[in-house]
Amino acid sequence: MNKREFLKGAIVFFPAGGALAALARQAMGKETGSAPAKDANGKKGYDPASHFYGMGVDIDKCIGCNRCAVACKAENDVPDEPFYFRTWVERYTIARDGEVVVENISLGARETTTQDAREIIRTFFVPKLCNHCQNPPCVQVCPVNATFTTADGAVIVDAERCIGCRYCIQACPYGARYLHPTTKTADKCTFCYHRLVKGLQPACVEVCPTQARIFGDLKSRASRLVRFRRLNKIHVLKPQLNTEPKVYYANLDGEVR
């Protein structure tokens, strides 16, 4: 490189660098403009750090009407196809010979049960959803930090960062995640985060006709969930995995996986 070429390069490089620096400053400016420290919905008074949400499910109250799954799809624009769910309801049928049949009634299988002809000793419904674990395996496996736990205890996915690698879908022991067919990113229950910040209940809890689903704040001294945990014998799904779920089941049968 001779002197002339070097100077030419420098003349092009430095103004370009200046422009880049200006862009960078602008980017920083934007960031501070929408600082996260402000409460999440722009409404005054919501402080994520002072909440920690969980859900209670009373198996004995569930009538299997599937209103929760229907409401969830409507509220969260979950694809219509019957096999995409953020929450769903399972029917457990336990026959005398001990065989357990599990059917997802949200798939439309509720009219027919394969066990009809056999002798059934007990049968019941189990609503399922993301357990919003305190120790979530799905978050651990994400290679790009696209899924995380919010300060108020909801495990959510950043669709703009998700690369659709499906690791989290594999890692979730509860089968609570699916790959959204149009965005091609992982999608899951958010506890209806957009409703929580406005003081509303998740859509599934809202429409439950028998209060089989209870929602509340574990940090509050008097929330429905705290009361629910006080008055019932509580179990969680797959406790042996140490995921520390925040969906608490009352009257859960030992056969439920």
Binding site: A40, P48, I156, D158, Y193
Partner: peptide
């Protein structure tokens, strides 16, 4: 980016 994602969700 988590804060931004939370905000988008909210």
């Amino acid at each position: 980016h988590w804060a931004a994602a939370t905000q988008r969700e909210a």
